[in-house]
Amino acid sequence: MKQMIILFSLIVAAMANAQNQRFIYEYKFITDSTAKDKQLSETMYLEVASKGSKFYSKDYFQSDSTMRAITEKDTESISINLGDFKFKGKIRYNIEKMYPEYSINFFTTLGSDEYLVQEKRKQDWKILPEKEKIGEFNTQKAVCDFAGRKWTAWFTTDLPIQDGPYKFYGLPGLIVKIEDNTHSHSFELKGSQKLPAGYEWKSTKDKERYHTLITINEAKFKKAYYDYRQDPMKSQKQMLAEGTIIEMRDSTGKLLDPVEASRKQEAAAKANIKKQNNIIELDLLK
């Protein structure tokens, strides 16, 4: 990283103004309940500015920016060389919280469709007396039920912003660590950076895109998520039916048969979905 990560011992002194900071979290997760020994991890950023915060995967954001630069060359025909480009990062969503009301926009993709889910849920925190030192922070315990899981958070008033990783917010200080009671999903603060000079908070909904952003509420997204798990290639099939040309090539640049390539892609997608049985929001599976 070009910017020096501020060590925990220095963060508090730098946080007289908690805005314009990028908080770096380690996200550890197990999405396949049949393979609990295969824990994955991802570096996540929580960027805090005066307008609000953004939460996203460091690696996926970089890959997405590169892919968008490539596809900007041609909006009618999309040629994908499977050997030349691979997305980094396993977390494909990003989350915005708008201050001061902390309204949440959840951006994610299902197949080739991109969704904006306008969140209305809030966490009903219960703050407990237990305190714990995590790194250089003095933290206090809080618990809540959210999205089908029971969560334990440790927050610090040393960082006076009521925000945290993922969709979590509403405690009297920044969430330093949060984990569900099955130890399947956890976020822990690992460092901080100042955002670049001239940083401007812009919503993901305003970025240029080739397909319409689908804006829905939580109930409709749950239905869309169920439908996607049943037919993960539905949106791609619709694109082909509408005349979109999608070329797929192997690592040598050889053009693949679209029917065979799609069949293999669908089989891989369905196999991956079967392993996504322990997702962070369990209530989406019910």
Rank of each mutant, 00 (worst) to 15 (best):
residue 255 L to S: 06
residue 85 F to K: 15
residue 164 G to K: 11
residue 115 Y to L: 11
residue 149 R to V: 12
residue 136 E to Y: 01
residue 52 G to I: 11
residue 223 K to C: 03
residue 39 Q to F: 00
residue 281 E to N: 13
residue 71 T to N: 14
residue 205 K to W: 00
residue 195 L to S: 12
residue 200 E to P: 03
residue 262 S to W: 00
residue 138 N to V: 15
residue 51 K to W: 02
residue 129 P to A: 12
residue 81 N to A: 13
residue 17 N to P: 02
residue 85 F to D: 06
residue 46 L to F: 02
residue 194 K to C: 09
residue 180 D to Q: 03
residue 181 N to M: 14
residue 89 G to H: 02
residue 266 E to P: 04
residue 129 P to M: 08
residue 138 N to P: 04
residue 84 D to N: 11
residue 14 A to D: 04
residue 35 A to Y: 04
residue 25 Y to E: 05
residue 123 Q to T: 10
residue 104 I to E: 09
residue 6 I to F: 08
residue 244 T to A: 06
residue 113 D to E: 12
residue 91 I to W: 01
residue 86 K to M: 12
residue 156 T to M: 12
residue 266 E to Y: 02
residue 130 E to N: 06
residue 261 A to V: 01
residue 152 T to H: 03
residue 109 T to N: 15
residue 134 I to R: 14
residue 183 H to D: 14
residue 240 L to G: 02
residue 128 L to P: 02
residue 185 H to N: 15
residue 117 V to Q: 14
residue 239 M to D: 00
residue 35 A to S: 08
residue 139 T to N: 10
residue 160 P to G: 05
residue 86 K to W: 05
residue 153 A to R: 09
residue 212 T to K: 15
residue 127 I to H: 00
residue 140 Q to G: 12
residue 30 I to H: 01
residue 281 E to K: 13
residue 239 M to T: 00
residue 224 A to W: 07
residue 102 Y to G: 01
residue 12 V to T: 07
residue 96 E to S: 03
residue 26 E to Y: 08
residue 169 Y to M: 15
